[in-house]
């Protein structure tokens, strides 16, 4: 088997990937539950939750797009989201929370970004590893400065300000529009040039280091906002506990970005799908399936997203 690059990418494979993913999910759920329960699993949608997951995944997905479209590998969205959520907890109101989360997460990814541009340290490794540091830092904050002392024996952070789901949706859509607009602008052109190699950017007369850093910083900032959105839209329990600092939405974001073809509008569509899958996952758990099965479903979407990306660019030849 060999992969041969297509001279013209075939977008149809994203549709194939999506349908295949859907087919996988349908088949798996049917096989696991049997007909009657399956109906409930697919249709029992909690709108509030669906929309809030959609908004968070969408913003995380856009964050991933920023990095992958420029050919840099931020895989630490989870860590940036933790920092963003932490900032949201520390903030007194929604506006401050959003601004602070973007700022803190940008600061958080600055280390991997600077290491990358100054010392050439692989950003995939550093962003991934800084996630673990983020978890420990968040735990420190939960235990000490941000601990909610009224919660008696609990070690729980104070609560983040509440954000209405529709506001989160608006922010997600705004972010999508913003990304599209940015990519149309000059800055966006250079960011996209980066995916063809640093030399191309240099050739265009710009600093590849600057744009590499910019791609990472933008990615981190959005991931931070995504983390803040996630924690602020919760209906109850807008706090962090020691054992659950991170939520896994960063990974969903990565899935959404690949399934959405690294295209901001594609990410919107993919996020809808992933939000639905998330609901399906919860429903599966409620009918007694092990938690792993539910996670595997969302994971399968990511695999199909990558398959779509590969088939979009390459032709498979069996020889």
């Amino acid at each position: 088997m060999r992969l041969i690059q297509r001279s013209k990418p075939a977008s149809v494979y994203y549709v194939v990937a999506f349908l295949s993913s859907l087919a996988t999910v349908l088949a798996a759920v049917y096989a696991l539950t049997g007909g009657a329960d399956a109906v409930r699993v697919f249709t029992n949608i909690n709108l509030q939750m669906f929309l809030r997951v959609f908004a968070a995944v969408c913003v995380m997905g856009l964050a991933s797009v920023f990095s992958y479209r420029s050919g840099v590998w931020n895989i630490g969205q989870e860590g940036q989201a933790v920092m963003g959520a932490l900032a949201a907890i520390a903030a007194p109101d929604v506006i401050t929370a959003l601004a602070l989360s973007a700022a803190v997460a940008t600061g958080w990814i600055a280390t991997p970004a600077l290491l990358r541009v100054w010392l050439g340290v692989n950003e995939a490794v550093t962003t991934f590893l800084t996630f673990f540091i983020a978890v420990y830092i968040a735990r420190y904050f939960v235990e000490n400065p941000l601990r909610d002392l009224t919660k008696k024996g609990f070690i729980v952070s104070v609560e983040a300000p509440f954000l209405e789901t529709y506001a989160a949706l608006a922010i997600a859509l705004l972010a999508a529009v913003g990304v599209v607009a940015l990519y149309r602008a000059r800055v966006g052109l250079y960011l996209r040039l980066l995916s063809s190699g640093e030399e191309v950017v240099k050739y265009a007369g710009k600093s590849p280091k600057l744009y590499t850093a910019l791609a990472l910083l933008l990615s981190g900032a959005l991931a931070g906002v995504g983390g803040a959105l996630e924690i602020m839209t919760r209906e109850a329990g807008r706090y962090m506990t020691l054992q659950q600092v991170n939520t896994g939405f960063g990974l969903f974001g990565i899935s959404a970005s690949w399934l959405g073809g690294l295209n901001p509008l594609g990410v919107l569509a993919a996020s809808l799908y992933i939000a639905w899958l998330y609901e399906v996952g919860i429903n599966l758990k409620t009918v007694g399936m092990p938690a792993l099965v539910a996670n595997a479903l969302v994971g399968s979407a990511m695999v199909w997203g990558l398959v779509g990306y590969v088939l979009y660019r390459y032709r498979v030849v069996w020889r």
């Binding site: 052109l189 996209r192 040039l193 995916s195 063809s196 190699g197 030399e199 191309v200 050739y203 265009a204």
Partner: peptide, 22 residues
């Protein structure tokens, strides 16, 4: 400067128009 390897000057994955806009 025209490099020998065109991929150092042209972004293969970007559109002709985008490349021109550089």
């Amino acid at each position: 400067y025209l490099p020998e390897d065109r991929s150092r000057a042209l972004a293969r994955e970007l559109s002709v128009l985008d490349n021109f806009k550089v």
